[in-house]
Amino acid sequence: MTNINCKFIQSETQESIKIFEVKAKTTKVCGTIILGNGIGGTMDCANKDLAKFFSHHGYNAIAFDYRHFGESDGSPRQLFSIKKQLEDWNSVISYTKKNSKNLNTTKLVLWGTSFGGSHTLTLGARRNDIDAIIAQCPNVDFLHTVLHTHPLRLLKLTINALLDIVGRSFGASPKLIPLVGELDSSALMVTRDAVLGYPRHASASRVWRNEITAGFALTLAFYRPIKEAHRITSSLLLCICNRDSIAIPDLAYQVVARAKNAKSVGYDCDHFELYEPQHTNQTLKDQLAFLATVLG
C-alpha cells in the first residue's frame, strides 16, 4: 500500500483544497507536519518534496495548495486573500486532527515559508493546540513593508488594487499583476533577489503562474503577525535570512524575543537563496534537531 495520498478536502466554505499527504516511513511516528507555501506559491514548487523528506525522518506530512492556486479549487484563479488562506490552514488542521490514529500523530507541527511562515505565527497566536511551529523567512509586519515601499510603486499598486476590486464588483474579470517583475513594472516584488530567485524556486512546478489579483494590496498593511507574537505558546523556530530584503530580519528577531518559547537560527543568505541546496540542507538539519528536542 502506498504511503502517499493525494485528495481533495473541503474548506470551511465547501470549496475544495488539494492536499498531498505522505505517511511516515518509519515504525515510530513522531508527529504530523503541515507545510504551507509562500505568496503565490504552489506545493509542487518544493513542499511536496519536503513532505517526502520529513516522512523519511518519522513524520506524517501534508502539503497543500491554497484555494484559487495550484491544484486546489476556487474561482477566480490567483485570488489572494489572507482570510481565506488562514481558513485553509484551519481546514487542513481539522482534517489532520480528525484522522490522527494515535497519540504521536496528534503532535502537530505547522511549517510555513515566507508568507506561509507569517500565517503559522498568526495561527500559533490564535490556537492552543499546536505543538511546534517552524517559520522560514516570514514577513512579520506588512505595515512596515508598506511604509517602506517607494511612493510611486505604492501608488501604482493602489491604483491596480482599486481597478481589481471595483471591476470585480461590477462583474469584470480580475485585474492581475505579476508576482515578480522588473523595477519599473507593476509587479508585487521587484527586488533583485526576487526577480532572480522566485522563478528559479518555482521552476519545478507545472501549475505555478507569475500572477496574482491586485486587490490584496489594500489589505496588506493590516496584517501584522508581530503584534500577536506574545500570545504564541508553542515551541517556535524561526529560520531567518540575515540578508533578506523582503522579510526584514530585525523584525523577525523581535518575534523571537516576544514569543514565550522561541528560538532562531540565522543564515547568511537572502530571501530566495534559502531555497538553494547549500542553505536548504543546513536548514533541514536545524529543523530536524529542533523537532527532536521539542517533540521528544
Rank of each mutant, 00 (worst) to 15 (best):
E15D: 14
L86R: 12
R153E: 07
T191K: 11
I39M: 15
P199Y: 01
I248Y: 15
M43Q: 14
R209G: 12
F80T: 01
F115L: 15
L220M: 11
R126I: 06
V166R: 04
S81D: 10
G171K: 13
F20C: 03
F64I: 07
V207G: 08
R231G: 02
K52A: 09
L163I: 11
E12V: 14
L86W: 09
H230D: 12
F53Q: 00
H57M: 02
T191W: 00
S81Y: 01
N102R: 11
C137M: 14
L147Y: 03
N99C: 05
D49S: 12
Q287C: 10
D244R: 10
K156L: 13
N3S: 12
D244V: 04
L108H: 12
G266T: 07
A132P: 05
H271K: 09
L251Q: 13
V166I: 15
D270S: 10
L155D: 00
T13A: 05
Y59Q: 08
R243G: 03
S169D: 06
R192L: 07
F53I: 03
T113D: 04
S186G: 05
V180K: 03
Q287G: 13
L163T: 08
S55H: 03
R206C: 04
M1D: 09
H279L: 02
A292K: 15
S185I: 06
I246G: 09
S186L: 08
S94M: 08
A252G: 09
L176W: 05
G266F: 07
S75K: 14
G124W: 01
S203W: 06
A61V: 03
R77M: 11
S94L: 12
A292Y: 14
Q78R: 13
T122L: 15
A125L: 09
G31H: 01
T233N: 13
I212P: 08
A252P: 03
T280H: 02
G58D: 09
A221S: 12
D193A: 06
L220H: 00
L176Q: 10
I177P: 04
P277S: 13
L108N: 11
H279K: 10
E21G: 00
F115I: 13
V180F: 14
H201T: 07
G117A: 08
V146L: 13
E273H: 02
I248S: 07
L50H: 12
R243E: 14
W208N: 10
L183M: 08
V265L: 00
T2V: 02
H56K: 15
D88H: 01
T13P: 00
R231W: 07
E273S: 09
R192F: 04
N160L: 08
D88R: 01
H150G: 05
R168S: 13
A252H: 00
V140W: 07
R127T: 08
K7I: 12
L143F: 10
I212L: 11
L123K: 03
L274E: 02
V207E: 04
G181L: 06
R224D: 01
S169R: 15
H271M: 05
D164M: 05
N104I: 00
T122D: 08
N102G: 14
R127C: 06
D44Q: 06
E71I: 00
A187V: 05
D141M: 02
W208D: 09
C269P: 06
E273A: 12
D131P: 07
T42R: 01
Q136L: 11
E182N: 09
V29N: 14
T149V: 05
A217H: 11
A135E: 04
K18M: 07
A204V: 02
V146F: 07
